[in-house]
Simulated assay, not measured.
Amino acid sequence: MQSVPSRRHIIADDIRSKISNGRIKADERLPSEAQLASRYAVSTPTLRSALAVLQNEGLVEKIHGKGNFVRYPRRRITYVGGGHALRTEPSVESALRVTIRTTNLQAHGQLAGLLEVSESSPLTEFHCISHEGKSPHSLARIYVPRDLSPADVPAEPHCCKSVEAKLAKLRPPLAEVRERVSARPPTPEEAVTLRISSALAVLAITRVAADRTGRVVEAALLVLPSDRADVLFTTHHMTDERTSGG
């Protein structure tokens, strides 16, 4: 026996169809929830449930205080393990810009543990949000000991590689990079910052880098929405010929 589609899925299918055929264009604001509920002759909770389906699919984003908007198709990026970088196609790289907020703070709790320093040790936080156009794309919080903090990182938007170059300028050569990748729901703050549904999983990457003396010189907490990111790790194995010494 074939099940009958629910009202919310019928509404979601209709709006999805209008987006796919161009009747509703990217970055266009949808009618208000009250107007849509009236148009489809459903209650507001049913209408919101239909919009939630589209939000979970990444087709619609809800901006607090402004309404529901059709999202541009998100460009995918690849985080390269151990490479301290987001790998992107040239066209993607030029489209992404990152804004930085710099804060001086003292190590505490998790940060003291990650950086292997005592409580209250001076640190600098770089709170980075990459944007594609006007929409946020990914989030990073990077922490370095205060003596390794560059003083000339501007706040205005610039490309991802220039940010990485600024942060690496004072950093000693690295000997070890440890990374932990997990999938989890976003925190409420992350969902608001990245304008994503709380039901959309994010890739959370904790990266700790140490120099040749064993000192931890950087700890980074990266959040990449799963609808636009991949993680790549490459392992190089020694061949028999190279290990035999012949």
Results as ranks from 00 to 15, higher is better:
86 L>F: 07
195 R>F: 02
97 R>H: 14
236 H>L: 14
59 L>Y: 08
234 T>W: 01
135 S>A: 15
214 G>K: 11
14 D>N: 12
187 T>P: 01
30 L>N: 03
195 R>N: 11
162 S>T: 09
51 L>F: 06
194 L>A: 08
36 L>W: 03
140 A>C: 04
75 R>S: 11
177 V>Q: 07
210 A>V: 01
234 T>R: 14
176 E>V: 04
137 H>V: 02
206 T>P: 00
161 K>G: 01
221 L>Y: 15
116 E>A: 14
114 L>G: 00
86 L>A: 00
173 P>C: 03
18 K>Q: 15
180 R>G: 11
109 G>M: 05
115 L>A: 05
186 P>D: 06
106 Q>S: 07
189 E>G: 05
155 A>R: 09
28 E>P: 00
204 A>H: 12
208 V>N: 03
74 R>Q: 14
132 E>Y: 15
225 P>I: 03
131 H>F: 15
24 I>H: 02
9 H>A: 04
96 L>I: 15
48 R>I: 10
114 L>Q: 09
135 S>C: 05
121 S>L: 00
220 A>W: 03
90 P>M: 06
229 A>T: 02
138 S>T: 08
115 L>P: 05
184 R>G: 03
209 A>E: 07
231 V>H: 08
234 T>H: 10
27 D>A: 12
51 L>K: 06
224 L>R: 04
205 I>F: 01
203 L>P: 00
62 K>Y: 14
242 R>C: 08
156 E>M: 06
36 L>S: 11
201 A>C: 01
238 M>D: 13
36 L>I: 04
146 R>Q: 13
54 L>P: 01
127 H>L: 13
100 I>W: 00
10 I>M: 12
201 A>Q: 11
80 V>F: 04
124 T>S: 07
98 V>G: 04
10 I>A: 14
34 A>G: 08
237 H>W: 13
86 L>P: 00
93 E>S: 13
102 T>D: 01
76 R>T: 10
192 V>A: 12
132 E>W: 13
30 L>K: 02
131 H>E: 07
210 A>W: 03
13 D>I: 00
134 K>N: 13
183 A>K: 09
223 V>R: 01
204 A>W: 03
204 A>D: 05
58 G>R: 10
238 M>W: 08
64 H>I: 14
85 A>I: 05
228 R>L: 09
61 E>Y: 09
172 P>A: 07
246 G>Y: 06
41 A>Q: 15
184 R>P: 05
238 M>A: 15
135 S>V: 14
202 V>S: 03
84 H>F: 11
80 V>A: 10
148 L>I: 10
70 V>C: 12
32 S>M: 08
230 D>M: 09
81 G>Q: 04
42 V>Y: 05
148 L>Q: 07
204 A>Y: 06
226 S>R: 10
164 E>M: 07
175 A>T: 02
190 E>A: 05
77 I>C: 01
162 S>D: 14
197 S>A: 12
128 C>L: 10
43 S>H: 13
26 A>K: 02
174 L>Y: 02
169 K>D: 12
47 L>E: 04
34 A>C: 04
180 R>A: 13
26 A>I: 09
155 A>P: 00
177 V>I: 15
119 E>M: 08
121 S>M: 07
46 T>D: 01
162 S>F: 03
174 L>W: 04
105 L>Q: 09
